[in-house]
Amino acid sequence: MTRWMAAAFLALAMCAVDRPLMAHHSFAAEYDKNKPITITGAVSRIEWANPHVYFYLDVKASPRPGTWAIEGGAPNTLYRAGWRKDSLHIGDIVTVHGYLARDGTKLANMSKVILADGREVLGGQQDGGPSAPKRPGQ
């Protein structure tokens, strides 16, 4: 694959990742949209609470192994989209595409969470109002 094709492919892939919409408080004050990150790990904890759902990943791979916190959407928005507390299970191996926290901690804001079998979970969770995000099974 030529460098040109690789660059084009990467650009296309980046467009496919959900862009984070401005949340009900400032995304950019906490996360860096110029620092996308992809990490894979086992889910070790799920916090289904306001103002944002969190889950924690046990990441083995370098460069930053350890426990990562992943911030998701608002629980009510996720619930209305059909997601539930058990949409993710402890022990699930997931790949998170997200954006790194500005303060350097092992924290990312998720834009996509993908299970080992390729299904997306907790997805389409933009705080976008009445237009329905993707429902599980769709």
């Binding site: 408080h25 400032s26 950019a28 004050a29 906490e30 916090e47 609470a49 306001n50 103002p51 944002h52 969190y54 916190a69 911030e71 926290a101 500005r102 303060d103 901690t105 924290l107």
Partner: peptide, 13 residues
């Protein structure tokens, strides 16, 4: 405020 974890990670913007 039941689980507001954003506060500690906010940076000036």
């Amino acid at each position: 405020n039941e689980n507001n974890k954003d506060v500690e990670h906010l940076r000036p913007h």
